[in-house]
């Protein structure tokens, strides 16, 4: 099934505490052709409606995931959502072709500075490497991997810098939602908002 437009799955367990994710969510709201899906608001008790979620995935062409990076991974509910919804026979394996040809876009925020992510930083690996599990998830399901969007040092940024980051995010989402097919990205593998 070929879906239309973009689905942005947002997961933050305490959105009220995150200026960055709030601003990014607000930016997403302003993008035409984008459906925002706030996981912690819809499933506060982690009782995910699997069939409804699968239908939602099939109805869209671009699947976006927006989340704060926790311990080099996604928040618990987003992981639960992938575990329960991206099933064998649906997303991968024999007969699992529902997501084939769709595009997966990841947008995440980090608490640390951009320079922490690399061989010389305290986190030792680049963001590209930390996002490998999601990249591989996309590959296994036959999806195109869009260049991820990463906003660093989200808690330490000034309002002005955050707003600039959110503006860049909105432009990126608008560009994604507007282009019907996957275009091999040029330049670095990750769009990083450092300052």
């Amino acid at each position: 099934m070929v879906g239309e437009g973009m689905l942005l799955v947002m997961a933050h367990p305490a959105l009220e505490r995150s200026r960055a994710n709030q601003k990014m969510m607000q930016a997403a709201r302003e993008v035409a052709g984008l459906t925002l899906h706030d996981l912690y608001e819809v499933y506060p008790a982690f009782t995910i409606d699997v069939r409804a979620e699968q239908k939602r995935l099939m109805q869209h062409q671009i699947i976006g995931l927006q989340f704060p990076m926790y311990w080099y991974s996604t928040p618990a509910l987003l992981k639960e959502w992938i575990d329960l919804v991206w099933l064998h026979g649906f997303a991968y394996g024999i007969g699992g072709t529902a997501l084939e040809g769709k595009r997966l876009f990841v947008a995440c925020t980090t608490g640390g500075r951009a320079e922490y992510y690399g061989p010389d930083g305290q986190n030792r690996y680049t963001m590209e490497e930390f996002l490998r599990p999601l990249e591989q998830t996309a590959r296994l399901c036959g999806m195109e991997w869009e260049k991820p969007f990463v906003l660093h040092a989200s808690g330490a940024k000034t309002e002005l810098a955050l707003q600039a980051g959110a503006d860049a995010y909105r432009r990126r989402l608008a560009a994604l939602a507007a282009v019907a097919v996957f275009v091999e990205p040029e330049g670095p593998a990750i769009q990083e908002i450092r300052e």
Binding site: V50, D83, L84, G93
Partner: peptide, 11 residues
Amino acid sequence: EAWDVKGRDEE
């Protein structure tokens, strides 16, 4: 059912 992937095991 997600946590008990019978289909994949059969594969």
